[in-house]
């Protein structure tokens, strides 16, 4: 019981996910994937597009995240995401929508290096998605 952490995922619209007893979280950090267990040092990092893996007591949950910020302190993980989807509910319609997003992002002008990097990553990740149902 005591080696769990709390995970909150919030989007501008709502509290997307909240679980008080998560064993570990694996997130796509901007400088590489990282796993967070209990008593990790406090950290603030950007996330790149990718999959978040949440290990709970007896199940694993996967989320697809477009971009976000992660904060960890006092054994509480907070992920601020602008767009996030549960991989178990993703369907072909959603993927079409995301592919449109990719096009939009590629057409944007005057992008910074960082934005370009994120856009290309996003494209890569979206293309690797497949509908769950």
């Amino acid at each position: 019981m005591s080696d769990t952490i709390q995970l909150d995922i919030v989007t501008p619209e709502k509290k997307f996910f909240s679980d008080k007893s998560v064993l570990s979280v694996t997130v796509p950090g901007i400088e590489g994937d990282m796993g967070i267990l209990q008593n990790h040092i406090p950290i603030i990092t950007f996330l790149r597009p990718g999959t978040i893996q949440v290990h709970s007591q007896n199940k694993e949950t996967y989320f697809f995240i477009a971009d976000g910020v992660l904060e960890f302190s006092n054994n509480i993980v907070t992920i601020l995401a602008s767009e996030i989807y549960d991989l178990a509910t993703i369907d072909s319609k959603m993927i079409d929508y995301l592919k449109n997003k990719v096009k939009e992002k590629n057409q944007k002008e005057n992008q910074t290096d960082n934005e370009l990097f994120l856009a290309s990553k996003f494209e890569e990740e979206v293309n690797s998605l497949s509908p769950a149902r």
Binding site: G29, I30, E31, I41, P42, I43, I44, T45, F46, E71, S73, N74
Partner: peptide, 8 residues
Amino acid sequence: QSQYEYEP
């Protein structure tokens, strides 16, 4: 408590 590690 708020000595954070930053990445980047």
